[in-house]
Design a protein around this nucleic acid. Structure first.
Length: 191
DNA sequence: CATGGGATTGACT
DNA sequence: GTCAATCCCATGC
């Protein structure tokens, strides 16, 4: 699962004419309390315990859809939360759906990227290879980038585990940025 | 069946 | 820095 969380950084998420490269993930596992699967098998979590390679999409704070990739074999509840993308294709479509212009604001958060790509709860359980959402290998010209490992954010339980993975050098990583990222991104243009 | 708490975001002081 | 919006579902009576 941690290996999947690291390997997904750089991969491309594609849906409904839009695509972006993953620049931030977080890992969740049934063995720790921040994971929805920690409570066991329920109607909400049964996707997490199913076969790997499917989407787990749920609503957060009544407003936002969160996209996860289920991992680990069937019977183990674990997933990787896709937290941020670097927009690659369909930028105008993303801007329409987000109501924003700046590239680095389109997908720089887990709720933002689902809004930008048009991903909603009806995609929960769909296959991530050949389904409506596709996850593909990194583009050939994708730059090699260091991974910054830091504690997961926005959670109250098991908050100490360093299971957040951010690609150095990308302004599209969600805020708050992990320690050290600031030193790896190009300064924003003045003006 | 009622309640409470989010793996967040954007607007505002 | 603070705060509200708002839906799903786990939990407890």
């Amino acid at each position: 699962m941690l290996e999947v969380a690291r390997a997904l950084v750089g991969c491309v998420v594609r849906h409904d004419g839009c695509a972006g490269a993953i620049v931030e993930t977080e890992a969740y596992h049934q063995s720790e309390a921040a994971c929805h699967a920690h409570v066991g098998l329920t109607p909400r979590t049964h996707i997490l315990f199913g076969p790997p390679g499917r989407a787990y999409v749920y609503r957060s704070y009544g407003i936002h859809a969160m996209l996860n990739a289920v991992c680990e074999p069937e019977g183990v509840g674990a997933a990787v939360l896709i937290r941020a993308l670097e927009p690659l294709e369909g930028l105008e479509r993303m801007r329409e759906r987000r109501g924003l212009e700046r590239r680095e604001d389109l997908c720089s958060g887990p709720g933002k990227l689902t809004q930008a790509l048009g991903i909603e709860l009806d995609l929960n359980g769909s296959d991530l290879a050949g389904g409506p959402i596709a996850i593909e290998p990194p583009p050939p010209d994708w730059p090699a980038s260091d991974l910054i490992e830091s504690p997961r954010i926005g959670i109250t339980k098991a908050a100490e585990l360093p299971w957040r993975f951010s690609a150095a050098g990308f302004r599209s990583v969600s805020r708050p940025w992990p320690p050290g990222l600031r030193d790896t991104v190009a300064p924003r243009a003045l003006g």
